[in-house]
């Protein structure tokens, strides 16, 4: 099986997020990028398939943020090949443009299974995976917690539902899967191995083919939720407090 894993970098939430002067974008000067968490799981899922059933795993990323670092780390973890799509603006692309760019790049590659994270945290249209499925007109299942081969040209995926339930769905390849989590957490790759890989391997750099996408929704402003710092304190007698709590739960659909 040939698996392609698409990796995206997203802002690291460990750093305080700053909004730029326009008020509608993150200030990239202060950004630190990390691999998107669900992409990390998608890679792990691919590597598990490789370990358990044999597969060739190729990873692909757009050239912004720490793409090199992320791709080399993927090679160190066990990916067979790493493709870097160059010619990307410094701040990356919107998710739809990213999906379209990946689609163009995937055109020339023989791949049975495209795995990527079900969502990236940093955009309005976070679902690269689903949009790619839609654009490529391939079968698409998202929010998976496991992917297993299932007979010739098929995989069996578990799609998560709330409350711990899941659906088992058989998908015909080629297909796109939006991974939520791999059956086990992403493996650790020792620093020495990454360094070794950086010395001995090279990234396959390819010029990204510019993709046209429909006008995206316009961002009016970005802002921080106000009550992020301290809890909103509730006051009153025990009965009043109980009532207020019940109300909060009701508002969130959490009341029994």
């Amino acid at each position: 099986m040939n698996i392609t894993v698409l990796l995206s970098m997203v802002p690291d939430l460990v750093e305080e997020l700053e909004i730029d002067a326009s008020g509608a974008a993150l200030d990239t000067q202060w950004l630190r990028y990390v691999i998107s968490e669900s992409d990390d799981h998608a890679l792990e899922q691919a590597l598990l398939l490789k370990d358990r059933h044999g597969a060739s795993v190729s990873v692909m990323a757009l050239d912004y943020g720490d793409a090199d670092q992320v791709l080399f780390a993927a090679l160190a973890r066990g990916a067979d090949e790493a493709v870097k799509l160059t010619g990307i603006p410094e701040a990356g692309l919107g998710k739809r443009a990213a999906a379209a760019t990946f689609k163009e790049a995937l055109g020339g590659i023989r791949t049975d299974l495209i795995l990527t994270g079900v969502q990236a945290i940093d955009d309005l249209d976070a679902h690269v995976a689903g949009m790619l499925g839609g654009m490529m007109a391939l079968p698409y299942v998202g929010v998976t917690r496991s992917v297993e081969p299932s007979g010739e040209g098929k995989v069996l995926v578990q799609k998560e539902y709330p409350g711990g339930a899941a659906a088992e769905i058989e998908v015909t390849l080629p297909a796109v899967i939006g991974v939520l989590s791999a059956p086990q957490p992403p493996r650790y790759v020792p620093v020495a191995r990454i360094r070794e890989v950086m010395k001995t391997r090279t990234l396959d750099e390819r010029e990204a083919v510019p993709a046209t996408v429909p006008a995206e929704p316009a961002i009016i402003r970005l802002f921080k939720p106000e009550s992020a710092e301290h809890a909103q304190m509730l006051d009153g007698s025990p009965e009043e407090l109980a009532e207020q709590i019940v109300k909060i739960l009701e508002d969130r659909g959490l009341a029994p």
């Binding site: 973890r77 957490p185 493996r187 020792p190």
Partner: peptide
């Protein structure tokens, strides 16, 4: 063990 990535989850988080 570490070279094999064979570390417990919390340790792994710390190392990462």
């Amino acid at each position: 063990l570490t070279s094999q990535g064979d570390v417990d989850a919390t340790l792994q988080d710390t190392l990462t």
